[in-house]
């Protein structure tokens, strides 16, 4: 019995979304693809070069180093920020005036613009006028983020932890608040230790927000630009030059649009790939066997 009516008008309802996505993502992306396969001298003089730019950027040792640096950086801050964020969330009060106060205090770093964060830490870390720098030199540590690569790294990581741990903490906090009281009651009846409560009640219930938290932190940190740019300018040397900064130097500084476009695409695919691998792994881990 055929009762289904063929009606394709529904496609018109999807059309606006197609248009928006086309203008917001597909067309700009295609422009980049377009650049990445051509050598452009001026709008009328351009040559199709195929995969040459891709080969070039993949073999560029400067970019390879930046990529490695980028991975180390992203994983370092995730390893620090996620456990720290969970700890902060666990310590935040859940009731009364203290709860709102804690929320505001924790959220403050998130409200500060990126370049201001860079500036704050640039001053904060200076040995002559900065609190942190002065403190370090007063306890006898030779600390100078402008000349010592290790100090520069330390400062950049510290800055990111300060800026973004609150995001993880707030996500975890909301996850913790969503756990019904009866779970804690049952755990007390079962004589569970504090650790067991965390391990078997809180952590499992936090998995979903943690996935979002880690993905957000990975993507954001992998694309970090403003803060290290303001703080160290990528130096000393190129010790804190991360991928996006290397990209900008190439695209704007040297105006090598072709390689820069090819590099952008590789960059984009790396983020996509890592996120996908991460997401599928977690989702598979969660599945009921």
């Amino acid at each position: 019995m055929q009762t289904k009516v063929e009606n394709n008008k529904a496609w018109f309802l999807v059309l606006p979304v197609f248009l928006i996505v086309a203008f917001s993502a597909i067309i700009p992306l295609m422009t980049v693809v377009n650049y990445s396969v051509q050598d452009i001298f001026d709008p009328y003089t351009r040559y199709f070069v195929g995969t040459e730019w891709f080969k070039q950027v993949m073999l560029d040792s400067r970019l390879q180093e930046a990529l490695l640096r980028q991975f180390i950086y992203s994983f370092t801050i995730i390893i620090i920020e996620v456990p720290l964020g969970i700890c902060v969330a666990l310590m935040m009060p859940t009731k009364g005036r203290g709860a709102s106060l804690a929320l505001i205090l924790v959220a403050i770093p998130l409200l500060i613009p990126w370049n201001v964060v860079g500036t704050i830490w640039q001053i904060f870390g200076r040995a002559d006028i900065g609190l942190f720098g002065a403190f370090m030199s007063s306890i006898g540590v030779d600390y100078n983020y402008a000349s010592d690569p290790t100090d520069a790294w330390l400062t950049v990581v510290l800055m990111d932890v300060w800026h973004w741990t609150p995001l993880v903490a707030l996500l975890c906090y909301s996850g913790l608040r969503a756990i019904p009281e009866v779970y804690y009651q049952a755990a007390r009846i079962d004589q569970a230790s504090r650790w067991a409560v965390f391990r078997y009640i809180q952590l499992p219930k936090l998995t979903n927000v943690l996935i979002i938290g880690v993905l957000l932190r990975f993507m954001d940190s992998f694309m970090i630009y403003t803060e290290p740019f303001v703080l160290t300018g990528g130096g000393p040397g190129s010790s804190t030059t991360f991928l996006s900064q290397a990209l900008v130097q190439q695209a704007i500084g040297q105006f090598d649009l072709g390689p820069a476009a090819a590099f952008s695409l590789v960059y984009f695919l790396i983020i996509l790939l890592v996120c996908w691998v991460f997401y599928t792994t977690i989702m598979n881990m969660q599945k009921d066997k």
Partner: peptide
């Protein structure tokens, strides 16, 4: 005495299980 010290069992209205176990 806290519930964990009273050695008592209680079953609640809505199921509480440890999901990951």
């Amino acid at each position: 005495l806290k519930p964990e010290e009273r050695n008592i069992a209680q079953v609640f209205q809505f199921p509480v299980v440890y999901d990951t176990m």
